[in-house]
């Protein structure tokens, strides 16, 4: 006689008494297909339609490459600034108690809530040579608006909450006893921050950094007003897509869009791999 081991039948889903699986999943997939897949695959189809050579000659056109370089470069610098200041903001919000802390905590989400065009014109007005910040800086010979520095300022604004909101919960859950343990072992505060706290925050910091970076690469509304949009100097890739579309040069727009998407997805893939690796080793994300 064979042992009565019941081998589970291969199933798409585990059985459940709850109703509505087919209906809700069917609706979800249909909706996603209509709103997201078909349009996105249109981009892939158009890119393929261009042919290999035509695609790369468009994608590697000097102005395109420069625009991509500016978008990715400015996003990188802004993400670094945000990693530093975002971590400081999260630290102050979690660890210190001072009047106005809760208000500040709520205000961190402002860049999520404020439409990008509003942020864009406001930053442009502030940093313009006659603006509240631009004026004193102009007296010092520093120009922000209508230069690549302006792009970075705008991207710092839109990216800040990503870092703060990913680091904050991790910092909150950080066991104070670990810091105390380091102190009883003779480690000074600076040493504890460097070798105990920062490594524990590193995965969250990296996630926040990548989110801010990815957002910065694709950002449009808050940048175009302050950037000055000078080709080869302060023209970002999303703007170049818009310009090509206005010129009815759909092929070029498609190529730039496809390259941006590929780079962004590669980025997300890397971050997912880092997070998975972290989880496997230290038992946390």
């Amino acid at each position: 006689m064979r042992a009565g081991v019941v081998k589970p039948r291969w199933r798409i889903r585990k059985p459940s008494v709850l109703p509505g699986f087919g209906l809700t999943l069917g609706f979800t997939l249909t909706y996603l297909t209509l709103i997201v897949f078909i349009p996105l695959s249109g981009l892939a189809w158009h890119s393929a339609d261009l042919g290999w050579d035509a695609f790369w000659s468009l994608a590697l056109a000097p102005r395109t490459v420069q625009a991509l370089r500016i978008s990715f470069g400015a996003a990188l610098v802004a993400a670094v600034v945000n990693a530093v200041f975002g971590a400081a903001v999260a630290w102050v919000l979690v660890r210190y108690r001072f009047p106005g802390r809760r208000l500040l905590d709520a205000a961190v989400d402002l860049p999520f809530a404020l439409p990008t065009a509003v942020a864009g014109i406001s930053l442009a007005a502030l940093y313009a040579p006659n603006g509240w910040i631009g004026q004193p800086l102009a007296d010092l010979g520093v120009r922000i608006a209508y230069t690549p520095a302006g792009i970075i300022v705008a991207l710092v604004f839109v990216g800040l909450p990503f870092v703060v909101r990913t680091v904050q919960p991790v910092l909150q859950d950080l066991d104070r006893e670990v810091e105390e343990a380091a102190a009883t072992l003779g480690a000074g505060r600076a040493r504890t921050v460097r070798s105990v706290i920062l490594p524990a925050l590193a995965p969250a910091l990296l996630t926040g950094f990548t989110l801010a970076f990815a957002r910065g690469v694709g950002e449009y509304g808050s940048v175009i007003f302050i950037a000055g949009n000078i080709p080869f100097v302060s023209e970002i890739a999303p703007l170049l897509i818009v310009i090509r579309l206005e010129e009815f040069n759909t092929a070029a727009a498609t190529a730039i869009g496809a390259v941006m998407l590929m780079l962004s997805f590669a980025l997300l893939l890397v971050i997912n791999m880092i997070q998975g690796w972290n989880r496997a080793r230290f038992g946390h994300g």
């Binding site: 997201v36 981009l43 999303p238 818009v242 727009a253 498609t254 869009g257």
Partner: peptide, 21 residues
Amino acid sequence: TLIDLPFSVSPVISGLVYVLL
């Protein structure tokens, strides 16, 4: 992951795909 996809796409590209379609 797919549901989160629109967040990782530049808004300009979100518009572009509809122009292409």
